[in-house]
Design a protein around this nucleic acid. Structure first.
Ligand SMILES: Nc1ccn([C@H]2C[C@H](O)[C@@H](COP(=O)(O)OP(=O)(O)OP(=O)(O)O)O2)c(=O)n1
Ligand SMILES: [Mg+2]
Length: 457
DNA sequence: GCGGATCAC
DNA sequence: TATGGTGATCCGC
């Protein structure tokens, strides 16, 4: 009976597309998702980008097929052992369950776009995105109703919403506003962990106990103070660990908060039908892999954990199980030890209209090397490994790296090594070049003042 | 150590 | 016409 009708994606191919910007996101309720996918498909289908995307989709499907074969070969005895592994894994995860900490995840609403609206209030009433015709960083909530999203090229945004206003990004402004929010966060947790310009994790346990107030009350205060300080809205999630707090901060976005009661029953109910994609760390691909085994929610993860044990690595199993049980970090991570750097790599890369002229490309590597070297100098760091990144005109990405015997940071050395690696790839037609340095250490220079988290002596 | 992939923002 | 930049981590060699 199978195969009489062609699969739906052959008749309506846009239904199969599933990129970063077709996913669920705050502010995307009540939009015609099928129409949006169709516009995106029509705008994309003849591009190199789309071809590469299709290739990746195919690759993911092959990966699912391989995993299924692997599962089929598992014997009954082995499966029994996987069940045991799962039981152990759950037991040890449960030992890390902490209900008594109060975590708040704060996330600014449509951050870049909101800053632009602040600086030009006329933008508040129109669909607007920050970015260029080539790439959108984020969109305000009016534009989101048209399907305009982060990581979507501006020209597609325009097709979804012809009135869309595109505003050039002002990173310095975003950094300034971000610093303002941090002044507020410090009040509630001096050790708050910042995750980029627009979000932070606050362990508010001590603050709550000292002031005799609840997590929800603290979240209200944070939102009020952030508004007072920045004139911007944010959303908060209140829960007993970082992951749950983060998921909660998305629940009542924008300008809202959500409190998850710190008891097992509430957490179990919260997590039961939660789509795996909501777990931070589970992206498009992992979601597809799991869906391939009928695993769609955290509840499904628990029920089918033996399947996961059979086809994924122990680390992935442990991560998915722990997360799906609603367990995650409940204490601040260690601060980098003195002399240790807070970052592990530093890089710069640029996209341009595809070029194949070797001298031009070599010259670009040289200027990247200078740019990177200057960034390293400003932090007084040097590195052992040089990695060159190439993106071919068909969007294939290649990296080539070399680890040295002693660290470097001067533009000439970086340029020389990067150029040598680039030369080996000729002839190529590139749309992007990048250089990254890793294996970093502070320059133990007497007069250069090490910045960042490295301690000077 | 290397290269490709995945993920977050 | 046109699909970003930066940093981290994991897996399988
Ligand atoms: N692929 C992405 C995602 C985000 N950003 C930038 C622009 C956003 O304003 C900022 C914060 O990212 P969020 O995911 O928190 O998105 P927003 O704050 O814009 O919207 P939301 O209200 O959903 O949090 O990071 C970006 O440049 N590229
Ligand atoms: Mg945000």
């Amino acid at each position: 009976m199978e195969g009489e009708n062609p699969p739906i994606q052959d008749i309506q191919p846009w239904k199969a597309i599933d990129t970063v910007y077709t996913n669920e996101k705050a502010g995307m309720d009540s939009v015609d998702k099928d129409l949006i996918k169709r516009v995106i498909y029509e705008a994309s289908k003849d591009s190199n980008f789309f071809k590469k995307d299709e290739e990746k989709r195919k690759q993911t499907n092959e990966r699912i097929a391989r995993l299924k074969e692997k599962l089929a070969k598992v014997t009954e005895d082995e499966m029994k052992r996987y069940h045991a592994t799962v039981r152990d894994s759950i037991r040890s995860a449960e030992r890390e369950r902490h209900l008594s900490r109060i975590w708040i995840h704060v996330d600014m609403d449509a951050f870049f776009a909101s800053v632009e609206e602040l600086d030009d209030p006329s933008l508040k009433s129109v669909p607007m995105a920050v970015g260029s015709i080539g790439m959108i960083s984020t969109a305000n909530y009016i534009a989101r109703r048209f399907g305009v999203r982060s990581a979507m090229p501006g020209f597609i945004g325009k097709q979804l919403c012809p009135q869309l206003a595109l505003v050039k990004p002002n990173f310095r402004r975003y950094k300034e506003k971000s610093e303002e929010t941090k002044e507020v966060f410090r009040i509630f947790d001096p050790d708050f962990e910042s995750g980029g310009l627009d979000e932070a994790y606050l362990d508010c346990t001590a603050f709550a106990s000292v002031h005799g107030i609840s997590g929800e009350e603290i979240a209200e205060q944070i939102r009020n103070l952030v508004m007072e300080k920045t004139k911007l809205t944010c959303s908060c999630g209140v829960a007993c660990n970082k992951m749950l707090a983060k998921i909660c901060s998305d629940k009542n976005k924008p300008n809202g908060q959500f409190f998850l009661s710190p008891n097992i029953a509430a957490i179990k109910a919260f997590v039961k039908d939660l789509p795996v994609r909501k777990i931070p760390g589970v992206g498009c691909v992992t979601e597809q892999l799991l869906n391939g085994f009928g695993i769609n929610t955290c509840g499904d993860v628990i029920k089918n954990a033996h399947v996961i044990a059979a086809v994924f690595t122990p680390l992935t199993l442990s991560f998915l199980l722990t997360s799906s049980l609603g367990i995650s970090t409940a204490f601040h991570g260690k601060k980098p030890a003195p002399g240790e750097l807070s970052r592990k790599g530093i890089s710069c890369e640029h996209t341009f209209t595809a070029k194949e002229d070797e001298n031009t490309l070599l010259q670009m590597v040289g200027s990247l090397a200078h740019e990177l070297s200057a960034a390293m100098a400003s932090e007084s760091i040097e590195g052992l490994t040089v990695t060159v990144k190439l993106k071919l005109s068909d969007f294939t990405v290649r990296t080539r790296s070399l680890t040295l015997l002693s660290p470097i940071s001067d533009p000439e050395s970086i340029s020389r090594i990067a150029s040598k690696m680039l030369r080996k790839e000729f002839p190529v037609k590139l749309r992007l070049l990048g250089i990254r340095m890793s294996g970093l250490s502070p320059i133990a220079n007497a007069n250069g003042k090490p910045k960042g988290n490295s301690k000077g002596s």
